[in-house]
Simulated scan of single mutants.
Amino acid sequence: MPRETAEYPGVSYVMPVLNEVEHIEAAILSLTGQDYPGECEIVLALGPSVDGTNRVIEEMAKADPRIRSIENELGSTPGGLNAAIRASHFPIVVRVDAHSVLPPNYTRIAVETLLRTGADNVGGIMKAEGVTPFERAVAHAYGSKAGLGGTPHHVGGKEGPAETAYLGTFQRHRLLEVGLFDEGIKRGQDWELNRRLRATGGTVWFTPDLEVVYRPRSSLVKLIRQFVATGIWRGELARRFPSENGLRYFVPPLAVIGVVLGLVLGTIGAIAGTWLVFAYLVPALYALFVVVATIPVLGSEGIRAALWHLVALPCIHFGWGAGFVLGYFKLSRNITAHTGR
């Protein structure tokens, strides 16, 4: 029987769940299959799913008493995380995503690293893996510098203190001290929480020894929605905390503005027969960048994934960049609805 010790303290897995019938069983099985010797519980904060997700969870909970569910009254990711954390009992909290699949040694390595470093939060690499050609194309974009900018939790790096971390294994008492996740932030709440942990003298720790399989969105529409929403909230966070958002966050919105202006001015120049036609060089250079970034996909994933990459990569850039502009200049109802501003 697992038991809680100083070396292996009890662990609470917390996961907000909403309409994840495609992924939820694999996500939960990756938790029940951990090789961690200590005690654990799995607390699922359930939103109003309409796709059968909650029925799957109900059946799994009958088979394993470690699995229990609570209601996510707010229905949002931070609201669900906070509800699950408040309902948890153990001193270590492991955040889990319904799209993630943890390797069997994940918890053991995370807790050992947390205790060894004295960090408040430990995270690793989000290793995107797809099944269909579209998903494989998106997964490649996730894990490349051309796609999401090459941050350590996407492409790897050296172990050490970090600005933020993917998912996260937390000291529960520190989560409570800083006030848990900000329920007014729909996306990017992990970055903002880690900001508060660091601001109060804590450490966020990255280790490449932790690698989590992440399942990308399965369609282009879902991908665009994801990145527009993510961009909106990153823009909001950049406006709220200007000194803590590096220049890399402004690259996608500047690229979007540059390409759009290049197309508009170039078209005006072509019609009027003026030098403005050279503005077409900006979108042309961007198109070349996308093609060059797609060459490795052709070699590793095949022609169908490469063709999807030519579409998915600009959708990621433009979705995120356009969302950032909307969020930064407070032009989105998405933010107004969740902040009261």
Score class of each variant (00 low, 15 high):
A6H: 09
A6K: 14
Y13F: 15
V14R: 08
P16V: 08
P16K: 01
L18N: 07
N19A: 06
H23W: 07
H23F: 08
E25V: 14
A26S: 04
I28N: 01
L29F: 08
S30H: 09
T32F: 06
G33S: 06
Q34S: 15
P37F: 04
G38S: 01
E39G: 02
E41C: 01
T53V: 02
I57A: 03
M60T: 07
M60A: 06
M60V: 08
D64Q: 10
P65D: 13
I67H: 02
I70C: 04
I70H: 05
N72G: 03
E73N: 01
G80H: 03
G80N: 03
L81E: 10
N82L: 12
A83G: 12
I85C: 13
S88H: 04
I92R: 07
V93G: 05
R95S: 03
P103V: 08
N105H: 15
Y106W: 15
A110L: 13
T117Y: 03
G118D: 04
D120T: 09
V122F: 09
V122G: 09
I125K: 01
E129P: 05
T132Q: 09
P133R: 06
P133Q: 04
P133F: 02
F134R: 04
E135R: 00
A141E: 06
T151D: 09
G157E: 06
G160R: 09
A162I: 02
A165P: 04
H173D: 14
L176M: 06
I185W: 06
R198I: 14
R198T: 14
T203N: 01
V204L: 11
V204I: 10
F206Y: 14
L210I: 03
V213E: 11
Y214L: 07
R215W: 08
R217S: 12
K222M: 13
Q226D: 13
W233K: 12
A238W: 00
N245R: 11
N245V: 11
Y249D: 11
P253N: 08
P253Y: 12
A255C: 11
I268V: 15
I268P: 02
A270C: 04
I271Q: 02
G273N: 03
W275F: 04
Y280N: 12
L285H: 00
V290C: 02
V297N: 09
L298I: 03
G302F: 13
H309K: 10
L310R: 10
V311L: 13
V311S: 01
P314E: 01
G319P: 07
V325H: 05
S332W: 06
A337N: 13
